[in-house]
Write a protein that binds this DNA or RNA. Structure first.
Lengths: 130, 130
DNA sequence: TGCTATATATCGGTGACCGATATGTTAAAC
DNA sequence: GTTTAACATATCGGTCACCGATATATAGCA
């Protein structure tokens, strides 16, 4: 692999947006916004940068053009490699979130340290490291 | 907020690593490696950069020092704000992964386009955009 | 006339990440 | 006895993903 693809969250969202059907760039921005619950609104430069990288990695490919209401639309389609990558990344995130939930459940409330480290000196860590 | 904190995945992992108990930097690297299933191995520069940013945002704070076997250990502790941030980010990831799984389930196999766009001309997108 | 939405694309700055480097201790391998 | 590896800290400098701003163009609304 000439360009080792970095699966950033934005690129991942673009990939996800294309799983249902081919979309043109502007539509990808909107679908990503929905997919992310309104939290991620891709800047145009981010979108086209991500599409370039995804295309170079073979995860996305052009899917034709059309003109609607006098405006050009350039469509993109996810490839089978792209789908596999999206599935793998989804599983990674799911597993990470599950592990995180478990770790957070183990200590529901942060216990406050009662012994402050002596000013300027060394002290045993307040958390009680074994 | 002077420095709007960006919750990157690496910073999130550092936060998660500190949920169980205060840790020193080197230990954070190891716990993150375990938490991420071996996928994320923090570079030292990344760790200290993340700790600085987390500290500036009030999500992590110093928790004393100690010397073990002649080696200095500097401990860090998660704050209640940090725990809240970790919980929020965990929920965001969980929801995203769930939505992604649903989207991917809807079309298990990528359907191949049968109509190629006419060479050099405009064509309706192969995916059948409504 | 101006503003918003749709739709494309690029430039240039910011900043998170990380390889490399530096310093020092402990301990196993050779 | 010297080298290698693990432990433990920290910084420098380069790369690159991200994004605000900008540019171009059409359609519709105030």
């Amino acid at each position: 692999m000439a360009t080792p693809f970095r699966m950033t969250e934005q690129a991942y969202l673009v990939l996800l947006a294309l799983t249902a059907e081919p979309l043109h760039g502007y539509a990808v921005i909107q679908v990503v916004r929905e997919l992310s619950g309104g939290r991620t609104v891709l800047a145009a430069a981010t979108l086209y940068g991500a599409l370039d990288r995804l295309g170079a990695a073979g995860l996305v490919e052009p899917a034709g053009e059309s003109v609607v209401d006098g405006r050009l639309r350039r469509y993109y389609r996810i490839t089978s490699d792209g789908r596999a990558a999206a599935e793998a990344e989804t599983e990674r995130l799911r597993a990470l979130a599950a592990r995180a939930q478990e770790a957070l459940r183990r200590r529901p409330v942060a216990q406050e340290a009662r012994r402050r480290p002596a000013a300027g000196g060394f002290a045993a860590p307040a958390g009680g490291v074994a």
